[in-house]
Simulated scan of single mutants.
Amino acid sequence: MNTANLQLEGLMLSVAALFEELKRKGVLAASEIEAALARAENGASERTTELSEANAEAIRFPIRFLKEALRESNDALDYRSVAAKVGRARDVRQTR
Rank of each mutant, 00 (worst) to 15 (best):
I33P: 00
S52F: 10
A44E: 04
D75W: 02
Y79R: 06
L11K: 11
A16G: 02
N2R: 12
L70Q: 09
T49M: 09
Q94F: 14
S45N: 13
M12E: 03
F61R: 15
R71Y: 05
Q94P: 00
L18G: 06
Y79D: 01
N5C: 01
M12I: 06
A38N: 14
A76D: 13
A30G: 09
Q94C: 07
L77G: 03
E50G: 03
K23Q: 14
E50Y: 11
Y79Q: 06
A38Q: 09
I33R: 05
V15D: 02
S73F: 08
L11R: 11
E57M: 10
P62F: 03
E46M: 14
E34K: 14
A56F: 01
R96N: 06
S45G: 11
L13F: 04
Q94T: 04
E34H: 12
E50A: 15
E68Y: 03
S81G: 06
T48M: 15
N55I: 07
E72L: 05
L18Q: 12
A54P: 00
L18W: 04
V27M: 09
S31H: 09
A83N: 10
A29K: 15
M12N: 05
S45D: 11
T48R: 07
A89L: 11
A83L: 09
L11S: 08
S81A: 12
L66Y: 01
L77Y: 06
I63F: 09
E34Y: 07
Y79V: 04
G26Y: 08
R39V: 09
R80H: 09
A4F: 11
P62W: 02
L70T: 11
F65H: 04
V86A: 00
E68V: 12
L28G: 01
E9D: 01
I63Y: 00
E72D: 14
D75M: 07
D78L: 02
L66S: 08
S45R: 15
Q94K: 15
D78H: 12
E57W: 08
K25G: 04
R90C: 01
I33E: 03
E34L: 12
